[in-house]
């Protein structure tokens, strides 16, 4: 694991009560020790999963591109653009874009605008819970270079240092039309087989983790949340 010492030190300092090592009585009366971080979470690193057959992969990529399930997690001011996107005015369902309420079932993560460090921590957890191949659509200039929050003490400047980004939609804020154009760009990328963000994340895992840990100072979760 990365930053072994730093990590364990931080773990002790910021650990939540429910994640502390504790003794639990089993139904048959014996006492066992539970270490939630190791027992309840998967500690494996992500693996690179290469596409196998070219022809089949092309077909599957077409299916993936036409069925984009978006996680309903608004991270910043841009999440207000998503309700008009799925309601009658713009109706993104026509293009195979559907909203899902849980990270397990979604493939597209819309980072909608500025990311505070507190939110970034949740974003990392959520991104790692999504099942690959997964795509990230970053909205607004805040995710590109910090936008109007470029010199803020608590918002990140470049999203691509923390999670791999497939498509940036520029603007402050981009309107739903721009978001639809971003979805079309993402579809092109997937169909070309270029949207391999999950594999990129697994390849450069150490780099991403060290960047994340540099700013998420109360790192009190496992290094990889599935």
């Amino acid at each position: 694991m990365i930053n072994e010492n730093n990590n364990s030190e931080n773990l002790n300092k910021f650990l939540h009560k429910e994640n502390e090592i504790r003794n639990v009585e089993t139904p048959d009366g014996s006492i066992i020790q539970v270490d939630p971080l190791n027992d309840y979470f998967c500690t494996d690193r992500p693996e690179v999963k290469e596409p196998k057959n070219k022809v089949i992969e092309k077909f599957l990529n077409w299916a993936r591109a036409e069925s984009l399930w978006v996680l309903g997690f608004g991270t910043g001011c841009g999440s207000i653009e998503i309700p008009p996107l799925v309601t009658p005015r713009f109706d993104a369902y026509r293009f195979g874009v559907q909203m899902r309420p849980t990270p397990r079932q979604s493939n597209v993560f819309i980072i909608s605008g500025y990311l505070a460090v507190k939110t970034l921590k949740r974003v990392i957890r959520t991104y790692e819970q999504m099942q690959g191949p997964k795509y990230v659509l970053a909205l607004g200039s805040c995710t590109i270079n910090g936008g109007m929050y470029w010199d803020s003490y608590n918002t990140i400047n470049r999203l691509d240092h923390y999670i791999p980004v497939d498509v940036y939609v520029a603007g402050c804020m981009p309107r739903p039309e721009a978001l639809l154009a971003g979805f079309n760009k993402l579809k092109e990328r997937i169909k070309d087989g270029r949207a391999e963000g999950a594999n990129e994340y697994a390849e450069k895992f150490d780099w991403y983790k060290s960047n994340q840990k540099k700013i998420v100072k109360d790192w009190n979760m496992p290094d990889y949340n599935w």
Partner: peptide, 20 residues
Amino acid sequence: PPYRRDFDTKKYAEETYFPR
């Protein structure tokens, strides 16, 4: 604390958040 005026928020952001 970041709202104290002797905290240089620009310098902190440049050192921490990988300015583009």
